[in-house]
Every structure is written in structure tokens, then in C-alpha cells.
Design a protein around this nucleic acid. Structure first.
Lengths: 147, 147
DNA sequence: ATCCTAAAGGGAAATCATTTCGTTTTGCGC
DNA sequence: GCGCAAAACGAAATGATTTCCCTTTAGGAT
């Protein structure tokens, strides 16, 4: 029930999503991947497994799964979206991504909630969402191990 | 020399950008605007002032000015980019944006640097950039004053 | 086990923000 | 004033993401 052996059936049931072969495959591929993947890359992998699978299906599923919090969206500095298997079950947290090797490290939620409280106290209003993501190079990439 | 009366000439000179009428107009419009604007909206305003101005010119300038730190990029939850006049001179900080009225409030940099230190200490590597942005409704919009 | 219905998938085509290209114009240091 | 690199032009290309409409399928109900 760790990252490489999650209970997809339960996860999908909780989200009210049907357990289709393609949806399961998308989760399996993402869960087996150490870094983040683009929709197109995921599609290429899926095409090796399924005779027919459309790119819209991939986008649709990624959107639903991200909305459900089973996977998380990575906003790359290149402005494209990537996806990473990372359930909300791990608690609320953020990511440090290596833009070189695509490794993702969790950042425990520390101070954003405090920041939110301050803002609300000072200006009023309500915060509906936030983006916190650190971009950089992991130690290996920095040391020149990769590339 | 406040938000509504900045010294554009010096700013542009520092960035090594020529002071063209269009570039100055872009800065003036953004500086006069209380909230963030989309490239297209900015373009519409500019077309009232200039007989000919292309959308690529707007995008090019916004990119250069954002790279130079004179204006800042807003990543809207709708996935489109917006721009807001906000020089780095104010010190490093982040934003709380109202997705309804587009108001922008500064968030003093508090804990991201601490977060960065922790990550580096734990995993090594280097952080090259980060995204921190809180999205929500300002007090007025929450109270139903707008919309 | 079979039915039924809403959800899911297919694929082509549309959308649309953003960028590229090759050419013309212009700011500004000399 | 000259000259040249930077800036701006507009048209066209790009390319990720979405829409459309029709077909298929999962899975609860019978």
C-alpha cells in the first residue's frame, strides 16, 4: 500500500470513478514512475499497451484524477503541465521538483497556512487555493551525475 | 516614485531595454491598473493609443519586463497568464490574488526561504525558482460587493 | 447471468493562447 | 546626422488542450 502498491480500486471507488482498464493503467504507470510525466509521454506509454487510446482520454483522466487528489499537477517553468502520483493521503504538502531529472521531493506543509491566516487577518477575504512549488536541481543533477 | 509615478526611464535603462513609446505605454497602463491584466486586454487598451501594435509586441514586452522583474506574472487558476505592475524593488514577496475582482495584495516573504533551507539541508541540490501564490476572494468580493 | 443507464472512450476537428519568421522601422550611442 | 542593433510589424505556424458526437463499457439493479 506504499507508492508502488496502492489500492487503486478503493481509490477510484472513493472518487466515484469507474475502474476501467485504461484508468487503472494510467495510475499504474504514474505510480511506477519516479518523476513527473507529461500527458503526451503517458500517452506514448499507454499506446504500447492498448490498441486504441486517444490523447483526450489521457487528458480527461489526468484532470479527473488530479481533481480527486490522487495525482498532483506539476507546473513546470516551461509552462507545461506534468503529473505525478502523489495522493492527498500523505497529508497536505508541496513539492520540490528537479527540472533536470524530474525527481520530486515532498515538502511538508509548514508555513503556508500561517501565511494564509495572516493575510485573512489583515485584509479579510478567503483563500480558495494556493500554489507552492520549489524548482531547482536535485543533488545528483547539481553534481553533474545526470546529463 | 510610488506605484503610480515610477521612473520608467531609469527602470528600462537598468534593464538595458530601449525606451520606446509602446514599451513605456505598457508600463504606464500596468502601473495605473489596480489589478492584473491579460496580454489581450492590454493589447486592446494599447490599440486605442497606437494605430498599429501587434499582439506579438505585447507578448514580447511582457516577457522581457517580467524577466527584468519590473512586472510580475500571475498564474491564474484558469491556467492563463496575467501581468501585474510590481517591481522587485519592493523586496522579494508573493501575492494573494482575488480571482473575482483581480485585486492583488502583497504577501511579505516569510517562510519560503526557511523552507528552501530545510529542503537543501535534507536533500542537497539547489533551488532555482519557486512559485508561491494564494488564490481566493478579497473581502469585498466575499461580501458580495462585486459581482 | 442479463439488462440498463450513466460514465467512459474514440477520433477528428476546433480552439486559442503564444511563438516564430522574415522584413521594416527606430532608438540612441558615436 | 549615421549606422546598427534592438524593436516592432503582421501573417502564419505551433502545439497543448478541449469539444463534439457517436460508440463502447462498467457495474448496480433485476
Amino acid at each position: 500500500m506504499n507508492r508502488h502498491n496502492p489500492d487503486f480500486s478503493s481509490i477510484l471507488k472513493e472518487l466515484g470513478l469507474k475502474e476501467t482498464p485504461k484508468r487503472r493503467a494510467i495510475l499504474e504507470i504514474l505510480a511506477a514512475e519516479p518523476g513527473f510525466l507529461s500527458p503526451e509521454e503517458l500517452w506514448r506509454t499507454l499506446k504500447a499497451r492498448f490498441a486504441t487510446i486517444g490523447l483526450p482520454t489521457v487528458y480527461r483522466n489526468l484532470g479527473e484524477l488530479a481533481d480527486g487528489g490522487v495525482i498532483s499537477t506539476i507546473i513546470h517553468p516551461n509552462r507545461h503541465l506534468y503529473y505525478y502520483f502523489c495522493t492527498r493521503v500523505n497529508g497536505h504538502h508541496h513539492h520540490f521538483i528537479c527540472t533536470s531529472c524530474r525527481r520530486v521531493e515532498d515538502i511538508p506543509e509548514c508555513s503556508v497556512s500561517a501565511m494564509e491566516g495572516e493575510i485573512i487577518a489583515r485584509n479579510g477575504g478567503a483563500i480558495t487555493s494556493h500554489i507552492v512549488q520549489l524548482n531547482g536541481l536535485c543533488s545528483d543533477c547539481l553534481a553533474g551525475v545526470t546529463e
